[in-house]
Design a protein around this nucleic acid. Structure first.
Length: 213
DNA sequence: GCGACAG
DNA sequence: ATCTTGTCGC
């Protein structure tokens, strides 16, 4: 299957692959957890991706990989994965230590067609994954108490597609959702575990550093 | 028809 | 995402 070029084709891919998403807990015990960060250079013509693998218990860096590719898809809300996934897959292939779980920047099922980048990566890699968005794409929710660990369900068309979670007092909450093979409840627990001190999970923070300097 | 809109 | 230094607040 060649990479989609139009919104129409991309939509077809999402509608076809979304049926493969497993929203229940179907995984083996996690030993390592990976975080992904994607950035752009040269006016956005170059996409750079970084994947950082951490020990799930100590949250210490175990391995990492980087990749740079020509950007091949524009940023269109609802189609983020078609812009970032190719570079992420290249970086993932370079890893010496494959992770047991992937925490992705962006939404999982908290998406217009329930197939955000976390679902896309999870399905293509057949790896448990979780979507960790810094802002909302779709859905309605009630204000989240300003307490670490507090969260509110995210509703969209009668369904709960994710959760709005406060990982740190005094900061904006994160938008958590299932990527693949991880339930929402488990996803929230995992994010809390990976973000013991700062707003963002250590996995994401590590990947961000590696992709910068 | 008018806004909203992951990174 | 990216362009960019200092600055206000806990």
């Amino acid at each position: 299957m060649q990479w989609p070029t139009t919104i129409e084709d991309a939509t077809a891919v999402q509608l076809q692959l979304r049926d493969r998403v497993i929203r229940d807990d179907q995984f083996e015990p996690f030993r390592t957890v990976a975080g992904v960060d994607v950035g752009f250079e040269q006016e956005g013509t170059i996409t750079r991706a970084a994947v950082a693998v951490l020990d799930g218990q100590t949250l210490q860096l175990i391995d990492y990989a980087l990749a740079r590719q020509p950007t091949r898809f524009p940023y269109v809300p609802g189609y983020l994965s078609f812009r970032e996934v190719p570079a992420v897959l290249e970086a993932y292939d370079k890893l010496r230590a494959k992770p047991d779980l992937l925490l992705c920047d962006g939404q999982g099922t908290a998406h217009p067609r329930q197939f955000g980048i976390a679902c896309h990566l999870g399905v293509l890699l057949d790896l448990p994954s979780v979507g960790v968005g810094k802002s909302r794409l779709v859905g309605r929710y009630q204000e989240v108490p300003d307490e670490r660990g507090a969260w509110q369900p995210l509703y969209y068309q009668r369904d709960i597609i994710g959760g709005v979670l406060r990982t740190r007092v005094g900061t904006k909450p994160l938008f958590i959702s299932t990527g693949h093979r991880v339930s929402l409840e488990t996803a929230i627990r995992l994010v809390m575990h990976c973000a013991p001190k700062y707003r963002l999970p250590e996995t994401t923070r590590q990947a961000h550093k590696l992709a910068s300097g």
